[in-house]
Design a binder for these strands. Sequence first.
DNA 1: GCTTATAATAATAATGATTATTATTTTAAC
DNA 2: GTTAAAATAATAATCATTATTATTATAAGC
Lengths: 126, 126
Amino acid sequence: MATTKYSRQREAIKEYLSHSKEHPTADTIYMDIRETYPNISLGTVYRNLNLLVDKGEVMKIIGMDGSDRYDGNTQHHYHFLCNKCQRVLDIDMDSIDRINDIANKNFPGKVEGHVTYFYGKCNECE
Amino acid sequence: MATTKYSRQREAIKEYLSHSKEHPTADTIYMDIRETYPNISLGTVYRNLNLLVDKGEVMKIIGMDGSDRYDGNTQHHYHFLCNKCQRVLDIDMDSIDRINDIANKNFPGKVEGHVTYFYGKCNECE
DNA sequence: GCTTATAATAATAATGATTATTATTTTAAC
DNA sequence: GTTAAAATAATAATCATTATTATTATAAGC
C-alpha cells in the first residue's frame, strides 16, 4: 500500500468518530455507518480503523473488559470506565507526566509513557 | 457450584503462578503445567484462573496488545509493558493514590481507583 | 472402608472478535 | 478515456476464550 487513496467509507468513519463522545466499538461504528452506507463491510471498518490509528488520527482504547474502543480525540486526556454500565467517559484533568519520572527512577529499562484508566461509577449509575 | 473441592490441577496453577515472575498467558501456563500433568486441559486452566481471580488469589492483567496475563502477586504494584518483546515486568514503586483525588475533583461520578501501565523498552531490549 | 452426591476434569464444540483472502469496484495519474 | 494501484464487499479463516457433556475425583455420611 504505497499511497493512500480517498475512500468515502474512511471519511465516514473519521467524520463519525470526530462527532462521537461514546468511545464506540468497531461493531457499533459499523452498525451506525450502515444507516448511511448500507453495504459497508465490517472488514472495511476494521481495516480503516487500524489505518487511522497507525496514522495517529484516531486513538484506540482497550477497556478493562478487553473490548477495543475508538476515540476521535487524539489529544491526551484521561478515560473513566464505569463498572456498572461499562461506558467509557472522558475526564478533563491535567496530565500527570511526572509519574513517568518516578517510574524511571525505579526501573532499569526506559519508561516512555504511561496509560491510566480510572474506574468507579459514573454519575448516572451512582 | 456451592462448595469448592480440592483439585491438584488448581493447586498446580497456584503453585506455578506463585513462583513465576513472567506474567504468563493462559496458554503459557497450560503448556508449562503439561510437563507435570500431561493431560490437563486448556479449559481447566481457564476455568481455574477465572476462579482464582474471583477469589482474589490471582490478578489478571490486560496487556496493551489485549492479551490476558496472570500474576500470582496480588499486592498492589505497577506493571511495565515492553513495546519490543511484549513482556510484562514489575516496577517497584509506591502507589500514587492521590491521583484518584485529582480525578474525583474533575469528574461528576465516583472515581474508586485507577489502573496504570507504564510502557517503553525494557533494559534487555534497549 | 464403602456408598453416594456433587464438584472438577478432559475432550471437544461453540462463540465472538478480529484478520486474511479474493474477485470486483473506485480512485487518480497519465 | 485508459490504465495501474488501492479500496471495497463478501466471505472464509484465525485466535482466544467460554460452554457442553460424559467421565473421574473429592469428601461427607454411614
